[in-house]
Design a protein around this nucleic acid. Structure first.
Lengths: 115, 115
DNA sequence: CTAACCGGTATCCCGGTGGTAACCACGTCA
DNA sequence: TGACGTGGTTACCACCGGGATACCGGTTAG
């Protein structure tokens, strides 16, 4: 259990870095361009976005398509594998929607009172 | 979307640090003692385990009970809130069991070939 | 000509995460 | 009188994730 060489080590519950899962969500409804991704992902830097997209590509989650033409246009799209990630992500989002207030309450209660 | 002050920022898909979710899983089947947790969590250091348990406590996921008696005994147990985390964690684990080989294949294919 | 947009890359720097090791109080056992 | 187990704490350190900033080649708009 939780052996370093065990798949379960991949799961509870971090997929990739801070933005990995968010980018997958942003691609849920079809391909997006580089600069289109920067809008919903407020505050992400170009460097980190590039790095994370490369990681998603390497992991087979996303395909990168450079459309030929006078003006540069690059699109990122989910693969079936990437699309399959939407399911656990949705579960995590559902949890957060339902419970994050409890969590914040607990945190708030934890800082104030004595101990 | 993905506003820093938005709950969705909490979710896709990182809960806490590297061990946060794993510890929750370890507590799934009832309370566990400090040293009992170190067994399944191969390689976790006492420092990190302590720190993560404190975080879980602060977040209302876990309660810490120090049982009085001659020999020191401390137990950690999931709260209902902590127990609710099992659901998205299970979804993530199910995903990993089903797809991690695809992911590893993609990674392997990504390192070798030209680019 | 100049400015702006696209899709990045390069560099610096800071803080957090996580590992190692030493140490600790307390109690038990040989 | 030690050695050992339990449940930690502390100091030190390396790595890396991520933010800020500057820059880049190519293209297009004013």
């Amino acid at each position: 259990m939780f052996d370093p060489v065990c798949p379960s080590d991949l799961t509870p519950i971090r997929f990739g870095d801070k933005w990995y899962g968010m980018i997958v969500r942003c691609l849920e409804h079809g391909p997006r361009r580089f600069s289109e991704l920067r809008v919903p992902l407020r505050g992400i830097s170009a460097k980190v976005l590039t790095r994370t997209l490369r990681a998603l590509e390497r992991d087979g989650m996303v395909v990168r398509t450079e459309h030929p033409g006078p003006v540069r246009q690059v699109e990122y799209e989910l693969t079936p594998l990437g699309r399959s990630l939407l399911e656990p992500i949705a579960a995590a989002c559902a949890w957060a929607e339902e419970h994050w207030e409890e969590l914040l309450d607990a945190r708030e209660a934890a800082v104030g009172p004595p101990r």
